[in-house]
Design a protein around this nucleic acid. Sequence first.
DNA 1: TATTGTTATACTCTATAACTATA
DNA 2: TATAGTTATAGAGTATAACAATA
Lengths: 152, 152
Amino acid sequence: MTSDGGRADAPVTEQPLASDAAFLLARANARSLAVAHAALAEFDLRVRSYSVLALAVAEARLSQRHIAEYLRLDPSQVVALVDELQQRGAVAREPDPNDRRAKVVVATAAGRALHAKAERATNAAEREVLGVLDQDDQDRLRDLLYRLAFPD
Amino acid sequence: MTSDGGRADAPVTEQPLASDAAFLLARANARSLAVAHAALAEFDLRVRSYSVLALAVAEARLSQRHIAEYLRLDPSQVVALVDELQQRGAVAREPDPNDRRAKVVVATAAGRALHAKAERATNAAEREVLGVLDQDDQDRLRDLLYRLAFPD
DNA sequence: TATTGTTATACTCTATAACTATA
DNA sequence: TATAGTTATAGAGTATAACAATA
């Protein structure tokens, strides 16, 4: 590090931005994303495509519109992500009998197998990132983040 | 969509991905980023340029390299951000007397004034996002995020 | 008239490689 | 030989508008 100078009239400078929750959130997220991407690379998945696959594997039978809302993506982005997963044979678009405009995204057997492997990798990645916290703090963090992520 | 409406006593694991800290981190960060960008728009600042400005305003006298490490950006991205702030007269590049390769980024008087206004806006934005948590939980969250963001 | 999926477009962000000047 | 700043470029992510089919 370069010159500190040791100013007498300035209080010991705290780390700049360190009290800014938005900055800390962004920096922690950047770390989490980098580790997750590294873990998913061997499955040719990105965090976004893995997330769509995870929703398709769940029993919720979400439409693309609902997937977009849940992942905070634009509906037009979901089109491309579902296209890619469908071309790989991991998901399929099924018509929604209640609304012929909507398409429900469901996982194929191959998609479920891919997800199971990828999930193990992301879980390992998460343990690596959260490893600096003990179990209680990890649970506390998840609870706090959930309330920020789903404020309604 | 079949949802239980988020009952307080319902296990969050009923929602897909909700036990995935990386997903919650990403979703909370997306919300935080959107609110911060809206707050900074009137100053023609983005979150990234505001962050660089905040470091320039601090007394740390960081080089571009150190700014890049601190913000988890590539050094080449910092060049463009400093260029933009310098053209606006908000920061200046000063030579580091200890290393003639390095350039220290410092704020001008105009930059400090801009930062003061922008900081008030981002603080208000942060209060809006963190408002769903009481003060103790906000402090707890900041502590947990700090340990994730700076694991060393 | 409003909504779902889709296409298209533009802009921002991210990642990488190479070059220069200094160390 | 390695590092700080810079330039260039390509790919990923984000935001917006428009359109056809359907509600």
